[in-house]
Nucleic acid binder design. Sequence first.
RNA 1: GGCUGGGUAGCAAAGCGGUUAUGCAGGGGCCUGCAAAGCCUUAUAGACCGGUUCGACUCCGGUCCCAGCCUCCA
Length: 462
Amino acid sequence: MLKIYNTLTNKKEVFKPINPNNVGVYVCGMTVYDYCHMGHARVLVMFDVITRHMRRNFPEVKYVRNITDIDDKIINRSIENQEDIYSLTNRFIDAMHKDERALNILKPDVEPRATDSIDQMYYMIESLTEKGLAYQGENGDVYYSIRNFKNYGKLSGKNLDELEAGIRVDVESDKRDPLDFVLWKMAKPDEPKWSSPWGEGRPGWHIECSAMSTHHLGNHFDIHGGGMDLTFPHHENEIAQSEGANNCSFVNTWMHVGFVNINDEKMSKSLKNFFTIRDVMKRYDGETLRYFLISSHYRSPLNFSDENLNSAKSALKRLYTATRDLSASEVAMNDISKRFDYEKRFNTALDDDFNTPIALSILFEIAKHINTERDKDPEQASALSQLLRKLGDYLGILQYSTEDYFKQGISISDAEIEQKINKRNEARAAKDFSISDQIRDELLTLDVVLEDNENGTTWRRK
RNA sequence: GGCUGGGUAGCAAAGCGGUUAUGCAGGGGCCUGCAAAGCCUUAUAGACCGGUUCGACUCCGGUCCCAGCCUCCA
């Protein structure tokens, strides 16, 4: 029984799909004017884990994640770079897809682009205008009238009058109420523009998500998610738009992923304290990053530091170490899964609001079990190893073969290493341990670790 | 100020009204020529003050502190 924490109610609730055969999930994706940072990575990875789990539990899941490819920041960046807006956005979309592959993130079912969805936005704005929920200012911009939507603030728990008190007044706008927000914005000269009943312009930020999500998932769907900073105003505004235009409830479950912090402060573009995925990938592989991101619960803050990343790397190594030199059939694996309750407990953990730390702890229990059975009962150890890999795959980790994991990234060739191992073993046979230790130390400086066991000497990367 | 979340051992991170979370790092031991890996074992917790209870890290109240949102942000 899947339980999910719902921002709308601030409670963990049993998840009941609107249509049990087809669950709809929408996640607010990137605004593509720069490379993805670790905060984006966290949202991408978490919803990847979430949708993988849901796909195993429901016949069909439709996962939609949009791309915002038109907005002020994109326009500014394109001017700054003197780069055509489409070449800019395409460049960063490609970069994002590359980052996703590195993090083993599966593609969403639909990845709509705002600029391909302008028609759907028209219809929605039109409908809002007809219902008296939108108006055009003297400057031509079209605004949403939040005072005319009775439930404004229900997601974020905001009180209108209190919001009003601390508002910053935007001098350029023609809003009737300072909390009103733009649905359609008149284009300035040389800005990208689309013709519309209100004049040539472009959509406001919030309308695209209302339009794209309902277009692909229906007016009322199951899950809508994003980073915690989108709760207000973005998601609040989406509710106002969608429920206002469609006269029905919009989303049942709102999910928000916590921030990635640097020194306990939110990683953000405005604070300029962010690390891009590609930067971090210069020092850590994608799987280590992914492990790090799922090592805490998705709603908790996650502190980004070398110490934590190194710890993630070591933890992952322990899991891979358990799988060394073991393989078993699927039959044996299914058999072992029935004998022990690891898989069951693993699924229960994910069913409990996607508790990845608990799920990971079960992986370590299996690893320990393998290590203790390895000599006593190799068959059982092998079957457990297969189970470990299967559950790892559910989380999108343990993707490499054991061989690849332990032998990648070494500058010296296999043959050279073997040669040195032979030389060392000759020295060991002659009990010349100073020579043998010297060879081992030499290899260690090249990140090659030697391990002696009864069948001979094996090597792995450090 | 309003609204959300938090404060757990050296670090990270969970569950739980009474019984080992888990990982990294540390101590002792086994194994090894010595290591590595692994196994066994071990120490270090629950911001503070009250209350409920036979019993609280876990529930309730209060205090202090931290983060986030209230402006674009994942």
